[in-house]
Design a protein around this nucleic acid. Structure first.
Lengths: 208, 208
DNA sequence: CCGACACTTGGACGGTTGTCCAAGACATAC
DNA sequence: GTATGTCTTGGACAACCGTCCAAGTGTCGG
């Protein structure tokens, strides 16, 4: 995970043939699936290849190193998540701006993320944050992700007419971040859907 | 990290001699240092032994398995943190209950945790939470830690006369959790001491 | 002083890992 | 058809891992 700036070609010289691009994508997909199911350190050349149904040497051929593989998988997850954030932000513009709507929107968003299918991205994000604490190089992957989240949050708060949008956004993002972590760490049990909405309503009301 | 309930004796039969207890403690201390510096997966028998200045076989002698070593190291960190929480809570009782005091108290607490020395515990906590999302067995270590945090937070909010102490505590804990993560993940840069206090003041005021 | 038992430790074990190589399969340009 | 390159892959390699063992050292009750 040494965070190489550019996605790179197969190990050998010359420009890549479009033929191999498919396999490369399959391997990345397999890696993402593994991260979701068993975490970052379940990623090994052989495990990823097996998950993709390909021979063991294929991961070595398509990625210069394991670091590059992991790095690119994380980057892919981040990219998808940023796209989702942009979607949400666009949808926000067409909605009513009342508190109830925003609360509901936030709640379903959180629920999607902590659901088994959405969890990959969430866990990847936390992995990256922890990693960033120790190895600043990992931060580059998080940057787009962070600004995407910031923009969405600030837009929502502005629409609600919050007092201090900047401070409010920090609070809201942090709270949601901590809330999600709490939820997945304890198996959802501490908070049902209604309570989640109460929490969000109380939180948002305090920022107006 | 299979989470064994009881701290156990050396690998061999019979009750342990007090002579070896020291070495065991040294090994745990070395493991904690390594977790702080390089993360959970930097823990290997050989690395821990080397960090403690002991021969490689010593870790195998004093811990039934690597899981037991890691598990016990995490438990030790958690125990210390719980003690700190209790201290803080006791100190809270003797303080004035105004908002400014609580804000200052929270701010310095957070600053202590994100400082290089306090960071071990913080990172360990996040590691455990992520781990708990995937392996419920890891939750047992977090339990005391969580109730300690809950109690401290609820006590502070009650002293401030918050409207809904239960909901407020969830919000406050989550926000602090997310805030700390944000701070260590991006190298403190996004928020200086004054801003941190503004954020906390705004957050708390919203809960009253 | 001596037996018993915990401690200590160098070295070995089987397994897994990341990475690489050599040889063949395949595709395309001429 | 043939040359030139990529793609594909089984197998090898050294390094590292967790764990264990056997032989030696230390200590202490009797």
């Amino acid at each position: 995970m040494t965070v190489q700036p550019e996605a790179s070609a197969p190990r050998r010289r010359g420009r890549p043939h479009p033929r191999g691009a498919r396999r490369r994508a399959d391997l990345l997909e397999a890696a993402i699936r593994l991260i979701g199911r068993h975490g970052l350190d379940a990623i090994t050349h052989r495990a990823v290849a097996a998950e993709a149904g390909l021979p063991a040497a294929s991961t070595s051929y398509y990625f210069r190193s394991k670091d590059e593989l992991v790095d690119e998988a994380l980057r892919t997850i981040a990219g998808r998540e940023v796209a989702l954030l942009r979607e949400r932000r666009a949808a926000l513009g067409e909605q009513a701006a009342d508190l109830a709507t925003i609360v509901e929107s936030l709640a379903t968003w959180i629920e999607e993320q902590i659901a088994p299918e959405g969890r990959v991205a969430l866990l990847a994000q936390y992995h990256l944050q922890i990693e960033s604490a120790r190895r600043p190089a990992a931060r580059t992957i998080l940057e787009d992700w962070k600004t995407g989240t910031d923009q969405l949050t600030e837009a929502a708060l502005a629409q609600l007419g919050a007092r201090d949008v900047r401070t409010g956004a920090i609070i809201l993002i942090s709270a949601i971040d901590g809330l999600r972590l709490r939820l997945i760490a304890s198996g959802h049990e501490p908070l049902d859907g209604a309570e989640l909405r109460t929490v969000l309503r109380t939180l948002l009301r305090g920022l107006l």
